[in-house]
Design a protein around this nucleic acid. Structure first.
Length: 660
DNA sequence: AGCACGCCGACT
DNA sequence: GTCGGCGTGCTC
């Protein structure tokens, strides 16, 4: 079979930013090449071959000069459809990164046996269930009242929503208990599926994966489901990826990478808890699910749904701008939240379990009926400086960044802009001495045993997570983010270590803390009580009222005035000072209104500068940063290996000196 | 990254 | 006179 279009435009799978463009190769007679297939191409020397994907097949080339022929067509599987290339291209441009880096996140590694079986699937008989209605019986996941919105309204193409998920837990037919928050999302996905359309659900972590998997499997036929997550065995991941290439509608559930699943008839993208750090990709070019989802919803004209107990700062900002519309359950039954101050004044640091008596009494009473959750903060967090007199955080006058002591006995300096503070005075109380803040208190299970004698204690933490517990009375001590789901819901919860959580030295502290509290509250029965211990002021008021709007708006307006994300966009540049400085100077020079924080020395001649710019300037700044990065990559080899690392829009860049 | 081309010091 | 140092630049 000869080819009428003899030229293949190829995107190379390489880590070299200089090669981040399409290359033309001649297709030799008799070689069958279709867009999206994996190929091997010669690069500079015939001896070496680079892997790549065919972007398109054309009949003429812009390239002056002789075209080398494709070395090999790896397989006929069209794993990079044009729509996926277009999505990855825009993601790369937004992050000032290479498209091949993004493609590497989107397309799982090839697994030959799986691919061969998939390519010959037409020859194998269709499974009996395939022709059955994929959106079979939906008894549990019915659409509960959402302020006059129907599931159909939410699936309207191009609409954007912030969906407040309901509290509590619910039992699915197979007997598993899942958070009730899964229900409206499963219902939306089922509605789309019954109309012959696909949905992508991206969740932050393994607990949500498990819950949603159970909820989806209890409502939908397995033919209509595809799971894509990072901890999957490679064969299974590739199998499910290939499944999403098929035209049949599907509900894709997964972590970060699932957002790229190349389904062709996308009705909706659901991002669960977009404020969770796990939605940021730790590999270059560090895209965030929220941003990829926004780009993709635009490309696919799909509905975009940010589902969470409480909106993230970024989504709150979009709500206030009118970019997304908030929807909340008509009737929400949330457990009562009672802030309880410490009533005892004994030495809290040596006390075995530093608990207010009201909370202890409440927990003891609840333990006669069922499980009680105790949420604790994991030990070891970055401690900063605080006013010795009033405990207020030590902040930089110039940019409101956290103050650090670079060396013992030296003057404090700002971790964000590097300014050294010679004579500090507290803005709250005029105190003049800064002292290091204390570390979190490591509480042991044995400590709780003393306060609650004779009670079964179950521990769940990041290293040894427990997914679910039964309905029997037990004290479930869990680090934040590792709370098991209790059958029938918890009868009560104690949220401990609030002060430690809130004093974490990070831009995301309040947002993260509110989210982690609410997710614990959501696991408690609506008729249960949550004791928020030792927390006062606006956070305590917001939690007891069950409404964070005012608190978050206040925080956002402050960030607006001091130019911090998400009110502005940021780019973090770290690397040798001799490389960072000219980039910073050039970007500031050519894009009016861009300002820099830093450079801050990171040690070893490496510095970091944060650029701040408006959303309107984003595309221009990203383009310029990418051009600089490519220029440096092909520059003198002396500095290679420690090139400049560019990370866009990661508020974490502002957190610690050592991060990134 | 590789692997070319390219313009200055000690060698058969 | 050449052989070869690796600085700079390109890869269809």
């Amino acid at each position: 079979m000869s080819n009428s279009y003899p030229i293949a435009r190829v995107v190379l799978d390489t880590r070299l930013p200089q090669l981040d463009r399409l290359f033309d190769y001649a297709i030799e007679p008799g070689v069958e090449v279709t867009p999206g297939v994996r190929v091997k191409v010669p690069l500079r020397s015939n001896a070496r071959f680079a892997p790549g994907y065919v972007h398109s097949v054309v009949d003429n080339s812009e390239h002056k000069g002789k075209l080398a022929p494709l070395a090999e067509v790896v397989s006929q599987a069209q794993v990079m459809p044009e729509r996926l290339y277009d999505l990855c291209d825009e993601v790369a441009r937004r992050c000032a990164g290479s498209i091949s880096d993004v493609l590497r996140l989107a397309i799982p590694p090839r697994y030959v046996r799986v691919e061969k079986a998939w390519l010959s699937r037409e020859e194998s008989p269709v499974p009996a269930g395939e022709e059955a209605d994929p959106a079979a019986a939906l008894e549990v996941a019915t659409w509960e009242g959402y302020a006059g919105k129907s599931a159909e309204d939410m699936l309207e193409p191009g609409t954007r929503w912030s969906l407040s998920t309901p509290y509590g837990v619910v039992e699915v037919p197979q007997g598993a208990t899942v958070p009730r928050s899964t229900m409206p999302i499963v219902s939306l996905a089922a509605t789309a599926l019954s109309r012959g359309q696909s949905t992508i659900i991206v969740v932050p972590d393994w607990r949500d994966l498990e819950s949603f998997q159970k909820a989806l499997e209890s409502s939908l036929a397995p033919e209509g489901l595809a799971f894509l997550h990072t901890q999957q065995p490679p064969a299974q991941r590739y199998q499910n990826y290939l499944r999403t290439l098929q035209p049949q509608p599907v509900v894709v559930l997964g972590s970060r990478h699932a957002i790229y699943a190349p389904v062709s008839n996308l009705a909706a993208i659901v991002v669960l808890e977009d404020g969770d750090e796990a939605h940021r990709e730790p590999l270059a070019p560090y895209p965030h699910t929220r941003d990829i989802a926004t780009i993709r919803a635009g490309h696919d004209n799909a509905a975009l749904i940010f589902a969470s107990m409480t909106p993230s700062y970024a989504v709150r900002r979009w709500i206030d701008m009118g970019y997304v519309a908030p929807v909340a359950p008509t009737s929400s039954s949330r457990a009562k939240v009672v802030p309880t101050a410490l009533t005892t004044s004994h030495d809290s640091f040596s006390s075995p379990a530093r608990l207010p008596s009201l909370a202890v009494l409440g927990a003891k009473e609840a333990l006669t009926r069922g499980p009680v959750l105790i949420q604790v903060f994991r030990a070891g967090y970055s401690s900063g400086l605080a006013c010795e007199a009033c405990g207020e955080r030590g902040m930089c006058r110039e940019c409101h960044g956290p103050l650090r002591l670079p060396r013992q006995g030296s003057s404090p300096s700002c971790a964000w802009c590097g300014v050294t503070v010679s004579a500090w005075s507290c803005q709250e109380c005029r105190g003049s001495r800064l002292v290091p803040r204390g570390q979190g208190i490591g509480r042991t299970v044995a400590d709780f045993g003393k306060t609650f004698p004779g009670v079964t204690i179950i521990r769940s933490d990041g290293e040894h997570p427990v997914a679910s517990v039964g309905a029997q009375p037990a004290l479930v001590v869990a680090t934040r983010g590792s709370e098991p789901i209790a059958q029938g819901g918890y009868c009560a919860a104690l949220l401990l270590d609030g002060p430690a959580m809130l004093s974490r030295e990070s831009l995301g502290t309040l947002e993260d803390t509110l989210r982690e509290w609410e997710r614990a509250v959501a696991l408690v029965n609506p008729d249960g009580t949550v004791y928020l211990t030792d927390v006062e002021g606006p956070p305590a008021l917001a939690m007891s009222a069950g409404n964070h709007d005012q608190l978050v708006r206040l925080e956002l307006s402050e960030r607006e005035s001091i130019r911090l994300p998400p009110a502005v966009r940021i780019a973090s540049l770290s690397g040798p000072a001799s490389d960072v400085a000219p980039i910073v100077a050039a970007v500031i020079g050519s894009c009016a209104g861009v300002s820099a924080l830093g450079p801050v020395p990171l040690g070893g001649g490496v510095v970091r500068t944060i650029l701040r710019f408006s959303y309107a300037q984003g595309a221009e700044v990203a383009r310029e940063l990418k051009a600089w990065r490519n220029k440096l990559a092909s520059g003198p080899r002396k500095t290679a290996g420690e090139r400049v690392k560019i990370v866009l829009d990661n508020p974490h860049s502002l957190d610690a000196l050592t991060s990134e």
